[in-house]
Amino acid sequence: MISNISVENAVQAKNQIEKLESQGLSRDNIYIFAHGDEREEDIADALHTAEVGIKEQGFFRSMKNYVVARGNELRSQMEAVGLSKEEAAQAEKELDQGKLIIIARTLQ
Rank of each mutant, 00 (worst) to 15 (best):
E40D: 07
E41V: 05
I43L: 12
A44T: 14
D45Q: 06
A46I: 02
A46G: 06
L47N: 12
H48E: 15
T49P: 05
T49D: 08
A50N: 10
V52N: 04
V52Q: 05
V52T: 11
G53E: 11
G53L: 02
K55A: 14
K55D: 09
Q57H: 00
Q57P: 00
G58M: 08
F59E: 08
F59K: 14
F60I: 09
R61A: 06
S62K: 04
M63Y: 00
M63S: 02
M63D: 00
K64P: 01
K64S: 10
N65L: 03
Y66W: 14
Y66L: 15
V67G: 03
A69P: 00
A69T: 02
A69H: 09
G71V: 09
G71L: 03
E73H: 01
E73C: 07
R75E: 15
R75Y: 00
S76P: 02
Q77H: 08
M78V: 12
E79P: 00
E79Q: 14
A80W: 11
A80R: 08
V81Y: 03
L83W: 10
L83G: 05
S84G: 11
K85S: 12
E86Q: 13
E86G: 11
E87R: 12
A88V: 02
A88P: 07
A89K: 15
A89G: 06
A89E: 12
A89F: 04
Q90R: 15
A91Y: 05
A91E: 11
A91L: 03
K93L: 12
K93D: 14
E94D: 14
E94A: 06
E94R: 15
E94H: 13
D96V: 01
Q97F: 07
Q97P: 00
Q97G: 06
G98W: 11
K99H: 09
L100G: 06
L100T: 08
I101F: 10
I102G: 13
I102E: 04
R105L: 07
R105A: 06
